[in-house]
Each structure stands twice: as C-alpha cells, then as structure tokens.
C-alpha cells in the first residue's frame, strides 16, 4: 500500500514539477521584489525580537549569541513550517476543481505545498549564511562541521510537514471551523518552539514538554553548526519518532477520509 502511493506519486513527478514551478513563479513573479516579500516576514520578526529582548530588556541569555543569528536560524524554518501547515491543510480545499477533474493521486496536492514552501526556505538560506559569514569575519562565531547537518534537519522537517498536511487537509474539507483552530494552534506552537529562546531557559517540566514538539529537535540540526553548544539528544530522538508517527497517522487518516472528501468536494 505504502509503496504504491510512493510509486504513483513518483510517476507524477512531472506534474509535481509543473505545479511547484507555477507556485514559485507566482511567488517570485516580480523577480527580486517577490523574493524580498518571502524573506521580509521572518527578517522583520527577527528584528522585532532582537530589539525587544536585546535592546529594550537588555538581557542576553534568552538565546545564544549573536542573538540575531540565533533568531534567524529558528525563524526561517518556522516560516516554512507555518506556511506549509497553513496552506498544506488547505491543499485539498483550494484545489477542489482540479481534484474533481483529474485522477492524480490526491496526496500530490499536499506534497506540492510542502515542496514549494520548502524551496522558499532553501532560497532564504543565503540570507542566513550571509549573516553567518558577517559574524564569522567579526570573530563572533566559530562555525563547525555540524553545518552539514542542516539538510538532515530539512529532511526531517519535510517528512513532518507531509504528515501534518496529510492529516489535516482531509479534515479541513469536512470540518468547517478547523481553519481557525489551526491558526490559533500555530501561534501557540510558535512560542512552544525554542525559536526566540533556548530550550534550557525553560524550567524542568516545561522543558520536557517542549521535547515533544517535533520542531524542537529539528532546530537542533539547524543551529548546531553555528553555535558550539552540544546537541541535545532526547528532543532529536523524540522529534524523529513524532515525525514518523505523524506521517503514519496522516497517511492513515488521509486514506480513510479520501472517499468521503471526494464526495464532499
């Protein structure tokens, strides 16, 4: 079963490419300006937190130093997470017309959103590396070999988002109010993810709870190359398990609800 879906999706890779290309074209239609829009949000949010915590509260120690780099390493992948969950959960609803008229595997629409948003993240990486280079030249950071773990984090996040999208997209077709719930939960998740603070800032029990947020472990992969602190194993292991669990659950729910979704769409 599982292999047959993968095979069918692979057979449709051409269509997938067309769709992703179209997404990016729409996104970057005005060439450079389009690009600025996609990175403006995380960049501005990072600046806000930087100003609030570093300049107004004047207390370091919420995150690692340099704080702005710390913020960006969390904010950029969060942008991917946020965008892919918001749009991925709407994937079936948004493409209702295409779903009614083509026999493409329905998982494709979720996969396409996760990929498009993922590519936007990849395109935002030069900004991160730019900041890294600046701080490196100024001698404020010492990057290490763990920079190569960045793609590992991306791979886990990709699978995670796919699982979440498969889980939520059919539910969203059938339950009208789900949209609002997702928006609220996402905002809560932002603060439940160590983006503007480090994990060890949270007191004991809370820290353990945060381990179960799969993004916690994923951020370890993104950050460890820039910051010389040891990687925390428990959240990483939990992250991988939760990710695989969500993919499994997502596929199960998607398969179960697919006939009903097709009748309703």
């Amino acid at each position: 079963m599982a292999t047959s879906v993968v095979k069918r999706l692979y057979q449709q890779r051409k269509v997938l490419r067309i769709m992703v290309q179209r997404d990016l074209k729409v996104r970057y239609a005005q060439s450079f300006l389009g690009y600025i829009w996609t990175i403006l949000d995380p960049l501005l949010m990072s600046m806000i937190y930087f100003v609030v915590f570093s300049l107004i509260f004047q207390r370091g120690g919420y995150g690692l130093q340099p704080y702005i780099l710390f913020l960006l390493t969390g904010m950029l992948p969060w942008q991917w997470f946020n965008g892919a969950v918001t749009e991925g959960s709407r994937a079936l609803q948004a493409e209702a017309k295409l779903i009614r008229s083509t026999r493409l595997p329905r998982e494709l629409w979720v996969l396409r959103v996760v990929m498009s948003k993922g590519l936007e993240y990849v395109f935002s990486l030069p900004i991160l590396l730019g900041f890294g280079v600046v701080f490196f030249i100024r001698g404020e950071i010492e990057p290490n070999w763990r920079l190569v773990l960045l793609p590992v984090g991306m791979a886990i996040q990709f699978v995670l988002l796919l699982g979440v999208g498969l889980l939520l997209s059919p539910i969203l077709v059938l339950v009208n109010d789900m949209n609002r719930i997702i928006r609220i939960v996402l905002r809560m998740f932002f603060y439940a993810t160590p983006i503007i603070y480090t994990l060890d800032r949270a007191p004991g029990v809370l820290q353990t709870i945060l381990w179960f947020n799969p993004m916690t472990g994923i951020l370890e992969f993104y950050r460890s190359g820039f910051f010389p602190v040891p990687m925390q194993l428990p959240p990483i292991l939990i992250s991988v398990s939760v990710t695989l669990g969500l993919l499994f659950l997502g596929r199960l729910v998607f398969k179960r609800l697919e006939p009903t979704v097709l009748k309703e769409i």
């Binding site: 017309k97 779903i99 009614r100 008229s101 083509t102 026999r103 006939p259 097709l262």
Partner: peptide, 24 residues
C-alpha cells in the same frame, strides 16, 4: 475522481475525462 464504498473498478488504460471541462 470518486472512490466507491463497495466493490472495485479497474481501469487498465489512461482516461481522458470530459467532465468539468474547465476544472483544470
């Protein structure tokens, strides 16, 4: 584009559906 609740339909060749023509 609809899945049956019972039974099975097997289509062994490609299909050009002229249903909701402008859907795509």
């Amino acid at each position: 584009v609809l899945l049956p609740d019972e039974g099975k339909v097997t289509v062994r060749k490609g299909v050009a559906p002229l249903i909701e023509l402008t859907g795509g």
